[in-house]
Design a protein around this nucleic acid. Structure first.
Length: 189
DNA sequence: GTAACGATCCTC
DNA sequence: AGGATCGTTACA
């Protein structure tokens, strides 16, 4: 059994260490930048597997954060954000686009990281369409799911921060928080 | 029940 | 600059 796993590792010529709960159950302001350069793995029903490096993230932090959906408390939609870190929070925006977020922190502390960009697919709505992510992934556990997970790629990418996109409604304080993280990628992508 | 509103994207 | 498009939320 251990032998088989070792052989698979050689064939894939890359390590296959899935990120566990300890990675996700930290403050969102630690996890959001740490996600840059991590490998997002998507395994489809037909067995095909694709991987992409995460290139852009955005942090949403608790009920006090007026840009965070949880600022209006726990509702049927936001309940997922109150789960312990390590699951996906998926919601529909503008009636057309699924947003993929990774829940972080401890149970009952609503935090999440919006995945805004992966290699070759900038834009949170475009990448979920590319990956076939929809409502059925809401609450999906990244540490056990057979169809989506994260791996450490052994990379630490440099990055810059900016205010978050599209949250002008949140008021001066919260709309200006520099909680968007954009990685600088090597030239040859 | 009813209405207003998006953590977006594409086309004009 | 404006429209697509519909689930979620707040309020009557």
């Amino acid at each position: 059994m251990g032998k088989e796993r070792g052989q698979e590792r050689v064939l894939n010529s890359r390590p296959t260490v899935r990120l566990g709960y300890e990675f996700f159950r930290r403050d969102v302001l630690e996890v959001a930048p740490a996600l840059l350069g991590k490998r997002l793995v998507r395994r489809y029903d037909d067995g095909r597997t694709e991987t992409f490096l995460i290139t852009e993230t955005e942090a949403y932090r608790g009920e006090e954060d007026l840009a965070c959906h949880a600022s209006r408390g726990k509702t049927p939609r936001t309940a997922t954000m109150y789960l312990p870190g390590g699951v996906l929070y998926i919601y529909l925006i503008y009636g057309m686009y699924w947003m993929m977020n990774i829940v972080t922190g401890k149970e009952e502390d609503p935090q999440a990281v919006l995945i805004r960009g992966i290699e070759g697919f900038d834009g949170p709505g475009k990448l979920t369409r590319r990956l076939g992510i929809d409502k059925s992934f809401n609450g999906e556990d990244l540490t056990t799911s057979p169809r989506i997970w994260l791996e450490d790629a052994g990379l630490t990418l440099p990055y810059t921060t900016t205010p978050r996109i599209g949250v002008d409604y949140a008021g001066e304080t919260w709309k200006n928080m520099p909680w968007r993280y954009v990685a600088y990628l090597p030239d040859n992508q």
